[in-house]
Computed example of a mutant assay.
Amino acid sequence: MKQMVKAKRMKLNSSDVIFNILNYGFFMIFTLICIYPFYYLLINTISSNQLSANGVINLIPKEIHIQNYINVIKIRGLGTALMISIARTLLGTTFTVLASSFLGFMFTQQKMWGRKFWYRFIVVTMYFNAGLIPMFLTMKNLHLTNTFWVYIIPAVVQPFNIILVKTYVESIPSSLQEAAEIDGAGIITVFLRIILPTCKPILATIAIFSAVNQWNNFYDTLIYITDQKLYSLQYLLYCYINQANSLKALINNATGGGGAADMMALATQQTPTSIRMTVTVIVVIPILCIYPIFQRYFVKGIMIGSVKG
């Protein structure tokens, strides 16, 4: 083994070395370009807010503090809004993945009644939208407005995700399902024990799409929700950003009032720029934590060895 490694090393000529240097150098620079925006946001949230507003902070943080994050924590209803966003992300992602995987699987079954009609019916919804008012009236008639389920139910069936799963399932050898059916497995058993384990890469992709959409979405709260107990974190922070130009109103909402001296001190510390950057960091961090968990499924060859002989 060591001799093979040495032989491979000896085969590298000067052109190969130059190519490797340029290749590694290019990807290192590309990585730094991708990381820098997040680094820029972070150092501006922990640096002097006045220097940040003036555009002075670019590489090294100055006058480091964490007051911006402390002020965000003081927002009324932040804990409840955080729980609502976590709950809608977890439940919405779970239901979307299950619905997309099951429908995508069923649309590959020749024996499904009206398979072509229902598949085309779902695809058509990608091109036609009734609009805001009909959608609001539909949610109201279904008694979903001002309920938690308005975050979940409208997002369960996603045509694009169904198409992705259907295409992936069609690439799976039919001998897997045929072998299971010979052993007496029904359609649900085939779906749960054969299709779902085999479709992990595409399901992980759909899960990321759904989780990002659920976590970042605040528009449905704006349209359908008036009860503050059901506000999502993103909508609450959206309101927080909109109040950045009026620091007095911002402080009243964030701290519930307080002495004039306290309000003046906070007003001198925060700026609209620092507020926007702080909120951006808070919203982005959970998504950055999710990506590494699912990343391995994108490159894993889960079909290797699934069919023997």
Rank of each mutant, 00 (worst) to 15 (best):
K11V: 12
S15W: 04
V17L: 15
V17I: 15
I18M: 13
I21Q: 09
F26E: 11
F27Y: 15
T31D: 01
F38C: 11
I43S: 07
I43M: 09
I46L: 03
S48I: 05
N49I: 03
A53T: 11
K62H: 11
E63F: 14
V72D: 01
I75Q: 08
R76V: 08
G77I: 10
L78T: 09
A81G: 07
G92F: 05
F102H: 08
G104M: 01
M106W: 00
Q110T: 12
W118G: 06
R120I: 09
F121N: 12
T125H: 10
I133L: 13
M135S: 15
F136H: 09
T138Q: 14
T138E: 13
M139N: 06
N141G: 13
N141F: 10
H143F: 11
T145F: 00
Y151T: 04
I152R: 03
I153F: 12
I153P: 00
Q158Y: 14
Q158D: 07
Q158V: 13
T167D: 14
S171Q: 14
A179S: 15
E181P: 00
I188Q: 05
T189I: 01
L196G: 02
P197A: 09
T205H: 00
I206T: 06
N213Y: 08
T221Y: 01
T221H: 00
L222F: 14
I223F: 09
K229L: 05
L230G: 05
Y231I: 05
Y231H: 11
S232L: 08
L233P: 04
L236R: 03
Y238T: 11
C239P: 01
I241F: 02
N242W: 04
N242R: 14
S246A: 12
L250E: 02
N253I: 05
T255W: 12
A260G: 01
M263R: 07
M263Y: 00
L266A: 10
Q269R: 03
Q269V: 12
S274G: 12
S274H: 02
R276D: 05
T280C: 13
V283S: 13
I287K: 08
I287H: 02
I293V: 15
Q295G: 06
R296S: 09
R296E: 05
K300H: 06
I304T: 12
V307A: 11
V307N: 01
